[in-house]
Design a protein around this nucleic acid. Structure first.
Lengths: 216, 216
DNA sequence: CCAAAAGTGTTGAAATTACACCCATGG
DNA sequence: CCATGGGTGTAATTTCAACACTTTTGG
């Protein structure tokens, strides 16, 4: 691409991919290109939308390109389109951003939210927007299921709610509420760990995200 | 613009502008350009995003260009970005669509939703998406206020909820609920019409949209 | 028997639903 | 006095919030 200005903006996608690791909310980051004006900074994975691709196609391509991540372990939804003129110092790029939740096992590339300082471009804003979306949506949908691959204990589920919402939840009321929603299935397995009483393992009954009042 | 293919997609905005007229939900439509492949069809207002504009800037410009509508009577929020390769037969255009609510008095250009058959491009899809967003959001925010300019009676407010939700609401429970939310202010005026008992007129206390459980 | 997390019930308050009649006005 | 929409209350049910102790296990 030459350095002259194009008559119109380019379109890119960026992905805010979240995952829980060790009781911390993490986001997948990569390094910016070497020749970039954002030297040394990290950024969300992304790329330009080609002529023969929808934004969703581009998203899939980027996910595959970044390797490591198997598509069926990633849930994505459109987040917001960022079009500020100066959002990318290199030139005019409009970004159609996606929120993603990763339920795979790989932890490579994921950085705890709390440890992130400054990101390239406007990616701090995209991250903030993604976190808000997740926080809002776990209150009225079962989107949280996209963060789990294996079966899980009630405590683990509760912990993830607490991490995302940033507040503690009463154990008894939580169990009562989730029970009443009828979205979980008890498996026959139990989790034994250390010298604790084994906990029953659960899984979500369906794969699709339902809308209902989860917490309130 | 020449007829050769550009290396990248163009970016446009489209506006799904809604308004209630005579107890019907209506959307603002214009005619497609004469030389278009969508001859004779109506479409949502929109236009290309220029190099020196954010999508929001373009939105403002288009609203002004379409005349008639004073900006302070329009509330807008980003709706969804449509990027299907074939969404516009004329060429590759990605549209950042906005939802708008119009509280002005002009009724010019607004067509009742029920009377709309086929729209140009993918604008039927954008309209559908906009209607869904409105329907969802009036349940947990005070976004409905953006459809009112003048003061209104309780019945009028209830009617708008009923139109958008497509279901009837109990008069007493509705009043109780809205009262308890403390978002309305009673004015000293009353509406006299025909030989009915005059109804008290209300207005919203604030202009900004609050998040809370409106209907349940 | 000790440490650690698992699991379980009750009560009071608040919110939600269902439901029917009288009021004020103009013609 | 009649037609029209405006305006009001109560009881039953459901949901929510607060709160503490017993159980199971491994070491």
């Amino acid at each position: 691409m030459k350095e002259e200005k194009l008559p119109f903006a380019l379109i890119a996608i960026d992905l805010c991919l979240l995952k829980i690791i060790n009781n911390e909310l993490c986001v997948f980051l990569t390094d910016v290109n070497k020749d970039s004006l954002y030297q040394g900074l990290k950024c969300l994975p992304g790329g330009l939308v080609r002529l023969d691709e929808s934004a969703e196609d581009t998203l899939k391509r980027i996910i595959v390109q970044k390797g490591l991540l198997k598509m069926d372990k990633i849930y994505t939804e459109q987040l917001y389109t960022f079009s500020d003129i100066k959002r990318d110092k290199r030139g005019r790029v409009v970004s159609c951003a996606f929120l993603g939740l990763y339920s795979g096992l790989s932890e490579e590339g994921f950085i705890p939210i709390g440890k992130i300082k400054k990101l390239a471009y406007d990616h701090s804003l995209i991250l903030k927007t993604g976190l808000e979306r997740l926080k809002t949506k776990i209150e009225y949908t079962t989107i949280i299921k996209k963060l789990f691959s294996n079966n899980f204990t009630f405590s683990e589920l509760q912990k993830v709610y607490e991490i995302i919402l940033g507040k503690e939840i009463d154990k008894r009321n939580f169990r009562k509420k989730i029970d009443s929603l009828n979205i979980l299935e008890e498996t026959k397995d139990k989790r034994k760990e250390g010298r604790m009483r084994p906990a029953s393992l659960y899984k979500f009954k369906t794969k699709n995200i339902e809308t209902l009042n989860i917490l309130g």
